[in-house]
Design a protein around this nucleic acid. Sequence first.
DNA 1: TATTGTTATACTCTATAACTATA
DNA 2: TATAGTTATAGAGTATAACAATA
Lengths: 149, 149
Amino acid sequence: MVEKEARSPVNTVTFRLGVLGAWQEARYTERLAGLELKPKHVALLGVLRIKGAESQLELAGVMRVAPSLVVQLADHLEALGAIERVRDPADRRRQRLTLTKDGIRLLNAAGDLAEELDEELTAPLAPADRAALTRILERLAAHTGIPTE
Amino acid sequence: MVEKEARSPVNTVTFRLGVLGAWQEARYTERLAGLELKPKHVALLGVLRIKGAESQLELAGVMRVAPSLVVQLADHLEALGAIERVRDPADRRRQRLTLTKDGIRLLNAAGDLAEELDEELTAPLAPADRAALTRILERLAAHTGIPTE
DNA sequence: TATTGTTATACTCTATAACTATA
DNA sequence: TATAGTTATAGAGTATAACAATA
């Protein structure tokens, strides 16, 4: 009979994802400051490009955040000129959000910043491991229902 | 001349680590509730087992959180009987924190919960990819100075 | 005077609840 | 009456600043 070794939680994937994720997100937040964006704004823009959104409520569902948060994020993005809100003529309660040219530029700029951070983070990894990490995280994201482009 | 493809930030390692990490940490927080612990408490216990701490200030440095937060976390863990605070006789300003038997039990229980979540999260991965993920995250943790047991 | 720990306060993020407009 | 969006409020988490004890 094999006694299971008591492993410290700090060595689990769960724990390390949490710590590394928070660490990397903090650094991303700093770099995004120049664009007047925070990661959640980027997430909203990203979802818009991937699949659009027939309503803000739908967007809240996809992003798994409260509808009231989508309002705040969209307010800011609209003020930046990154998105446009268009009332659905068929149902005037709904606001359709669309990416503007400037929004696409912002999203690409945010993408460049994220890639820079990727480079820095994965610098100590062998090329094969970098590729593996990218592939595995994509797999996990897809499996947990996180939007993927 | 190769034009670099504009990649969406949502497909970067940086962004996915942030989203997956927050998602998994939220689930871990739920499961830990029964132990009256939050992830930061587990982190403190974990660091204590790995390397001990000559002072709370040192612990704050290792954990990369404010000293005032260590006080709160330690207050709670002491109330649970998981740690003991012992004044350093040589320098009575310092509080040395030590894990108790109960603290070790709690840490192990928290480890079991994290392993359960690991199983669930990595279920869709091939065994080789699970191993790769564990190995790569450990590598990244070590490289960014995150404590490792 | 400098350092450790603690307490008081404030800020950020985000959710819940209440409200408005439209259906 | 039900739904989309919005606004108001509240809570969690954590940092910064002020303070106390010891060196």
